[in-house]
Simulated assay, not measured.
Amino acid sequence: MSRKGSAEGSDRFEYLQTLVTEFQDTDSEGASAGKSGKFSYDPKNYNHLRDLQVTDLFLDMLTEDNDNFVEFGMGGLCNLSMVPEFRDFILQNDGINLITNCLSKRNEETVLSAITTLMNLITINSRSEITQPGVLHCMLRFSLSESPRLRNLASVFLQDCCSEEQVAQAEKQMQGQQTALGIPLPKD
């Protein structure tokens, strides 16, 4: 039985390695990256994903011009950001800045993953950067979105991640600016 488990682990690693290699060697629409992102849900894959430096790959994908790559990268980071080891890696590698930039993407899935990832990345040390005024203004705008998913998630972010004082200050700064100028809201 342990032999079978070892073989399955080896097969799993090889499969993930193949996906990463395929992604790095292709200009496709991100099918391999999407599969890698889906594998980041399963704790059995965490060691393999760490060894394959998939977190680096996902962070790199956030800077791509291809919206599908950005969506897959953001989704993969969202899945991994719940694990302290991956969370710390993301925080140490300019992840907050890269993820915050994804808040202005037109793809709603990308934006939802970015908000969720920011929530997952909150620690004592990262809270002030994640809840800085620019992000709060963005969340306040999203809380007015026609999309229920975006509106609700932004409201949860404001309620769970920010103090009442922070939200009141951001609302005061935005008074009269309740449009989404500069931040394209995803289409329904």
Rank of each mutant, 00 (worst) to 15 (best):
L16G: 09
M174Q: 00
C78I: 06
T110V: 12
F86S: 11
Q17H: 13
Q166Y: 11
E129M: 11
D94V: 06
S128Q: 15
C102H: 04
Q177F: 14
A7L: 10
G34L: 02
L150D: 02
L144K: 14
D188T: 03
N120L: 04
R106M: 03
R87A: 07
D67K: 11
E109T: 13
P43E: 10
F69K: 10
F142R: 02
P133Q: 14
C162A: 01
S147F: 00
N120K: 10
R3W: 12
K105Y: 10
P84T: 03
S32R: 07
Q175E: 04
T131K: 13
T117D: 00
L52T: 07
N152H: 06
Y41Q: 04
Q92V: 14
V54S: 11
L80Q: 05
L185D: 04
R50I: 15
E29V: 04
V167T: 12
F86A: 12
D56K: 14
T55S: 11
E109A: 12
G134R: 11
Q92S: 10
T100P: 03
A33Y: 09
S32L: 02
L140I: 13
G73R: 01
F69D: 02
D42I: 04
S113T: 05
F72E: 13
C78R: 05
Q177S: 02
D60S: 10
E85G: 08
E171M: 12
R87F: 04
L140F: 01
P43G: 09
D27E: 12
M74A: 13
T21W: 06
